[in-house]
Amino acid sequence: MRRIADSGYSTLLMPDFPLMQPAPGPTLAVAAALTNLRVGTWVYASPLRPAWLTAWEAHSLTQLTGGRFEMGVGTGRPGIDDELRDKGMPAVPPGERLDRIRDTVRALREFDGAGRHTPVAMAVRGPKARALAAEVADTVTFVQRADEPRAEVARLARDFRAVRDVELALAVSVVGDRVAPHMAPPDVDPAAVRAADSLATLPEDPAAAAEEIQRRREEIGFSYFVFGADSADTFAPVVAKLAGQ
């Protein structure tokens, strides 16, 4: 954690994979206590817990970190129904998952009160999810296949920004020939991702990566870039070059 902070990164994010990692709440609280990093979830899976519980944990993290917590939330990754079944939990229909996100944000705003505003990031794709994000989110990322062409995601970004001007985030799951764990299926072919001109990849060369990041900022509007921890050292020079820009 300290190495990431010392490299100039602004935020440490954790996925929501119960039993495969430490719980996000205590882990992020420790990270914020040991460093000056912002911390956040990328992203809470709404089917896994009651809305009020997610909101209470998020508000508590905002309090414990002095306002350095960001609550990322989404409707659940592929295979979430199997995960719920394995844990003895009922399946949650897609519409109810979005309702749970709405209820989570509403409860979070009540817990925060007038003196706090925990930023909310949403992972979205379909029209209903995008509409909800336009109402409640501070940051939006678009769920995409690793080999999805750049033009389609760029269209989603332009259409969304026409409705509401919020910060757009981009998850980069493939760096060079490396696929980040938990950010894309392990069988993703990096060559196919590059051939599709996908936004889910960046070159491993720091200078080329910095140039491409600036291009995506200027042409599409992405200003928040998310990388796997396995690329933290590789992209430290990129962070040093682009910090504050």
Rank of each mutant, 00 (worst) to 15 (best):
V175H: 07
V188T: 13
A146Q: 00
D187L: 02
R155P: 11
F142C: 05
A169Y: 05
E110W: 15
A123Q: 14
A162S: 10
P185S: 04
V153L: 12
V136W: 07
G113S: 08
A184K: 03
R164I: 04
S173Y: 12
R158E: 11
V140Q: 10
A151E: 13
A131M: 11
R130Q: 08
D165Y: 04
R145L: 15
V188S: 07
E148A: 07
D189R: 09
R158P: 04
G176E: 02
S173N: 13
A180E: 03
Q144L: 12
L132S: 04
V140T: 03
V166F: 02
A151Y: 10
P190M: 02
R164D: 02
R178N: 10
Q144W: 06
R150V: 13
R158M: 07
A151C: 13
A123P: 12
T139A: 13
V163K: 04
K128A: 12
G176K: 01
T139P: 15
R116T: 12
V124K: 00
R155S: 15
V188R: 06
V174W: 09
D177K: 08
R158Q: 10
E148I: 05
M122Y: 01
A162R: 08
L168K: 08
V124F: 02
A123F: 10
R150F: 15
P181W: 03
A154R: 03
A129I: 02
E135R: 07
E110N: 14
V124D: 00
S173F: 09
T118L: 00
A123I: 10
D112H: 10
G113V: 03
E167N: 12
D177M: 08
H182E: 10
A146I: 00
E148R: 09
R109P: 06
A151T: 11
L132N: 03
S173D: 14
G115H: 15
T141L: 09
A180Y: 02
K128E: 12
V120K: 00
M183P: 03
V179F: 02
P181Q: 01
